[in-house]
Design a protein around this nucleic acid. Structure first.
Lengths: 146, 146
DNA sequence: GTAATATATTTGATATATCAATTATATTTG
DNA sequence: CAAATATAATTGATATATCAAATATATTAC
């Protein structure tokens, strides 16, 4: 069976691209906000936009499972970015509140994220971006429907 | 600062695509070969093709750092897929040998990988694949040159 | 040839990924 | 309403990710 080496496939390219972007973005974030990871930043952004969101819902949006999300929230609480409090209308879930420190991060973060996205997409046309999304979505759907 | 939600960006699409592919591929591998992860499979493929490869070199090809690779090799040794032995020409590095069990995996794995790649890329033209690679490479380079 | 530097790998610490099992609370069904 | 089922979150176990520091061996420079 003749098989392309993994490093010659498009999957390798996808992996290396997203990893390179993550590294790049993380560096820029770390310079401005110590102790803050990309994913923790995303959680803050989502919570800020949708304050009622449950851990489970956030988890889906950032591609984590519930167990990972529990632990991520734990460390974010330990680092004082957010606070857990009881949700009386449904006591299985928590209310997640952004602390003052978390709100400061929400001031600092957006320009950095904006810069990260912009400079990593420099020289790429709107049309190219749409094609990229379309092709990736095809692959994603192929993987889901089996 | 108006910022797109993370879930509306191309980075989200890239992440979800590669994660969906990994989940899909891992399921198919697990059905045939228990205890074997995608990345461990890739390590075997590379080692088989380039028997002299060091842990460091393999690590680069599968996007791990050296520490992760050390631990991955440890578990692959524990599971008896490969064997470490001394390399007398350079005693800092190991010789990594594929065991009989590892060789059996190398018989079973390629058709599965072939199927994984093929079915996830179904309906995507050669031209689209090239575009995809080209655009991703642009992004990757943008991230590296900062 | 020895000291300084470089390289390959490991280890420790902490965070995250993943699966399966558990807990606590809600909802549904008979 | 009580029993069965569903849901949100946690926990345990194991693997991996990442950074920094440590080890052991090689190479280079003086």
């Amino acid at each position: 069976m003749k098989l392309k080496l993994p490093s010659e496939t498009v999957f390798h390219t996808i992996e290396s691209t997203i990893k390179e972007y993550r590294k790049f973005a993380q560096q820029n974030i770390s310079e401005a906000i110590p102790e803050m990871t990309i994913d923790q930043g995303l959680v803050l952004l989502f919570l800020n936009k949708f304050p009622e969101m449950t851990q489970k819902e956030i988890a889906e949006l950032v591609f984590k499972d519930n167990a990972s999300m529990t632990r991520m929230i734990n460390t974010m609480v330990k680092k004082n970015f957010i606070k857990r409090s009881m949700n009386d209308s449904d006591r299985r879930r928590y209310k997640l509140e952004i602390t003052t420190k978390g709100k400061e991060v929400l001031e600092t973060l957006p320009p950095i994220i904006h810069h990260n996205r912009n400079s990593s997409l420099k020289g790429i046309s709107k049309n190219e971006l749409e094609q990229l999304q379309a092709i990736l979505n095809k692959i994603r759907l192929n993987c889901q429907n089996k």
